[in-house]
Amino acid sequence: MAVVFQKTKGLTDKQTHYCPGCTHGIIHRLVAEVLEELDVLGETVGVAPVGCSVLAYEYFNCDMQEAAHGRAPAVATGIKRALPDKVVFSYQGDGDLASIGTAEIVHVAHRAEKITTIFVNNAIYGMTGGQMAPTTLIGQKTTTSPYGRDSNITGFPLRISEMLATIDGAVFVERVSVHNPAAIRKAKKAIKKAFEVQLEGKGFGIVEVLSTCPTNWGMTPVNALGWLEENMIPYYPLGNFKSPEEAK
């Protein structure tokens, strides 16, 4: 019997704790498949964040280090500088990367660290119970913006990829989504490219993945995918902002 699909070796057998319909699972699988396809699982050290993916170190089937909130790029820097021949990645959510860890993400790009960051943007703090994130959309209700995000009070959603693309040391910047199978295939291609950029020693690479949080958005998984497409993509346009060809 021909095997048409099997679980990637890049993930452990541990069952994830993610909520039903959460897209973290898909993104984990894409990263793990890429590491397996590039045959670097044994040479990889991943850095887990604080947030919903805090337990990512239990799911990725490679050496892992758990970082403090927002510090994953600094921790990854320490690892990559100590192990320059290894593959190092950080996996971070939007509270971790776009709020408490803005200094670390900007400067990992500024130093052109040869690491890869997977940035999962679901426009909300999931782990702590659905508070407003810097990426929360205008009008979006959260437990700390109960009347909807009001730009007069809380400013405007932060576009991380666009910002990082202005930094010379960031040589690969792409925003993708996982709201349908076609988008997932594109997301995997971008993640693979980001790791290849690291393997080629070209500089810092980041893939921002638009993701859902059905639990804290208060939607069914299917509705959440639709909400992502209709509300997030218009504000956070998909596409490649930077690749080594143009970075030079």
Binding site: A74, T77, A82
Partner: peptide, 26 residues
């Protein structure tokens, strides 16, 4: 060896944490 001037003390100690996790003297 490697010297990195971090963006802050917070980042510096977290780089130390990362390198220490790799087993080097830091």
């Amino acid at each position: 060896g490697v010297f990195v001037q971090a963006e802050s003390e917070v980042a510096a100690i977290n780089m130390v944490y990362g390198a220490a996790g790799s087993g080097v003297r830091v």
